[in-house]
Structure formats: structure tokens, C-alpha cells
Design a protein around this nucleic acid. Sequence first.
RNA 1: GGCCCCAUCGUCUAUCGGCUAGGACACGAGCUUUUCAUGCUUGGUAGAGGAGUUCGACUCUCCUUGGGGCUGCCA
Length: 441
Amino acid sequence: MNNDIRVRFAPSPTGKVHIGNIRAAIYNWLFARHTGGRFLLRVEDTDLERSTPEAIAVLFDCMKWLGLDWDEEVFYQTKNVKRHLEVVDRLLASGHAYKVEKTSRDGKTGVVTMFRMPKEGVIEFDDIVKGHMAKKAEDIPDFAIVRSDGSPIFHIANVVDDIDQRVTHIIRGDDHVENTFKHICIFKALGAPVPKYGHLSMIVNQQGKPYSKRDGAAFVGEYREQGYLPEALFNYLLLLGWNPGDDREVLTREEMIALFELEKVHVTAAMFDPKKLAWMNGEYIKKIPLAQFVEEIKNRVSTLTSRVPEHDAAWWNYLAEQLQVRTKFLNDIPAAVRCFVSDDFPFDEKAVEKRLKKPGVKDILLDLIQRFGAVADWTAPALEAVVKGLSQGNGMGPWVHPIRVAVSGRGEGIGLFEMLQLLGRDKTLARLQRAADTLCD
RNA sequence: GGCCCCAUCGUCUAUCGGCUAGGACACGAGCUUUUCAUGCUUGGUAGAGGAGUUCGACUCUCCUUGGGGCUGCCA
């Protein structure tokens, strides 16, 4: 355990949190938790137009949702501007920086402060994930650190904040590799210790380009809305570029913390595979304790109806048990439980066409009403026994399919007899009658 | 263009010189089966190309090719 280790996640709040960005947060967090160091959050809110309180709230929200807790008070970059400028003055005084009149791309002319890069020698560092990196100083031109309007630019703000926060390890996106050579020179010019670096590869789309919103859900909030579990997204993102060294893929948070090593993070870009994420989500849904899954169902039911129907705990548990293994996304729950909540559920056109609008089906349903009506003990096994008796070992399809569509409106769902047991005798018989009267030919 | 980085199944990856190249997702087949799933069994698909080092190279070196990043008064 090394309590001197300090890492930070330093996003600029834009109202949305990109999955590539949050993966950097995950790696930082895991690194801190694994080493016993501290995980800091710095909000780089210098873009006043986009960095609204709402945008910052979204950021906090996403992090909390994923269980990424930070250790010290949030550091706001805008509150450190005075320090940035003081440091620039020091650089100016020591000759590491100079002022010059420049014309920017968009044509405005003004005096900016430039950082003076060394003109010879090699700048190098050992990146924890990418290995040894070196670049000739002459290949990097001087660069601006203060705008003509007097505001500090990213390079100086970032380095000064890292010094002030006493950051020891900078774990961030690959796109900052080139900046690192510049930043190292600033640290040295200031006589500050150079932190260790670890650059993370990007998450790319199927074309190998950086994953953007055009490629599907690119922001954390979207996964949340679509019914993904935070644990699943966390686990999936972690596996995109890291593995525990054996065949385990679904890991507990404790295992992740225990096993995570920055040295084992991949250098290559990883393609985002929504199918595997979906699979992993299903794995995590199966792990939800039954009682909690029941609550989840009730919550979703409340989006369908103002009053959650009254049932005993056994009824809810039975439903949850049946539903849990079939659920890939929490958002699939409402459609699956609709028929238990209300008599007014939609009928799937195709299913009706295929299962009910066929000759003889009406008679089968009417016959079933009689037989089910005579069942003394309204349980799944008893009901199944009735249909088994009718099918005489030849497959229950001709009975089962029409019943399912008649009582639920859908061609898929939980086990049919379990469904009937949950619905109860009255609803089942009424729905069979209704289908026979109005949906069959 | 210049500089930097990268390269194993379709995808995520294991392999740290001995490989009949393993696992997962996806896909195919089968079993279970009332639907949809789950579960179990099972199949196919990979080391970009070329030199070199070595008894031996997917693993090391070089070149080529391909991909990505950066090259702002953005971050």
C-alpha cells in the first residue's frame, strides 16, 4: 500500500460523459484503490459556456452511478486561475516563456504568452502502459500558454493543477501523448517533480475510428436510460484493454481492485462491442438478489400503472424467478409484466394471426375454459397436467400457443403454466373467453 | 507532409522462445423444451507480408504494408 500515490480524473463538464472518458476514470479509480492511493476529481471548467452547474451535476451523477467515489474535495480549475498566471510570471521571469504578437487561425491578432521549448536534446519518459517514449525536443515547437485575452491555456492550467494537487500518476487518454512531452518540459522548468504517466488507448467503432455518438450510445447516461446495470458497464469497460490474466471475465468490484494493474493495460485500441456488453448485462441481472429484482419489477410496474397490484410476497418472488433469467435489459421488464398488471394490454398482430386466427382454435379455447374451470387446485403443475392429458404425449403446441397469446398478447414470455398460475383462475378464464369471442375466426 | 504509437479468430483477449495457438462474445449444430430464455454438449474461424537472430519464433531485431494519434490563442 502506498498512501503517497495520488491520481486524478480531470474531465471538462459538457453535460454528457463519454464512455472513453469514463473508462479513464475507472482505470484511475482502480489504480488508486489497488495501490491504496487517493483518487481525486478535478473539474476543468474553464469553458464557461459549457461548464454549467447542470453539466457538473451530470458528471457527478454518472460517477456516483458507477460507484466511482473520490477522496478529497472537488478541485475546480477556474478557482486556480490566479495561480496559473502567477506561475506564468515565474516562467516569464526565468526566461522559459516569452510574449509575442500572433495572429490566430480565425484572424484575430494579439499578444500571447509562449512556452519556450528546449531546442536540443531528447525528451523521454517511461509510460506505464506504452513503455519508453522519446521525442527530439526540436520536433516540438514553442506553444501558447496564455491567450491574448489573458486567460491560461490547457497546458499550463493542467500542469499547475497537477502540481497543486500533488498528482503522482497521470492516467489519461492516448490523445494526450504528444502533450506529455510539452508538459514534462513545463514541470522541469518549474523545478517540480515529473509525475509518472500512463496513456490509455481509445475505444473505437467498427471502422476503427474513435467511438462517437454516431456509432450508438456513446455517453454513460444513455446506458443508464436503456436499463444497463452500472456494474455491467463498469466491468465491460474495464475488460476493454485489461484482463486479470486468467479466463475470468465477470468480476466483483473487490476482485477488480485486487487484480488491477496498470502495467497490464493494453496499448492497442479496443473496439466497442455492444453485443458483449449486452451479454454481460444479462450476467449481472442474473446475479441480482431475488428480493432486489422484485423491487426492480415493482418500480418498472409503477411506470405502467398508478397502482401496483396487490399480491403476496410469494407471488412476486415467483414472477421474479421466472423473469430474471430471461431479462437482458431492465427496460424489457414493463412489456414482460404488462399482462399481469392490467387486462388492457396490446396484442401482437403477428402472434394473433399465427396462433388465434386459425380454424379450430376457438373450439380449443372454449374447451379449455371448461377443463381449466374444473381444476380444483390452480397451480402450474395441475394446469400442465390438463394440457398434457389433451396432447397425449404428442406435444402441447396446439394448446399452449393459443393460450399464451390469449392471456398475454405475446408469443413469448415466462413459462406458460407459471404465467397462468400467477394470473389466477378468474383472469385466465376471462381472457380465454375474450379471445374466443373477439380474436378467433 | 512531419513526428509518435500500434498489429493473434469477425470482436475482446491468453501466450512473457517450445503451440496440437487457449478462453469469452457473436455465429452454426445438438440435448433439455409449451414459447422466449437459461443450462449443458459441440463445430468452424487467427499470429499482415518479407528478411534476420536461434536447435526452435506468434513471441526478439530490421524493412515493407496497414491502422491510429498529434501537428490550435480546443481540451
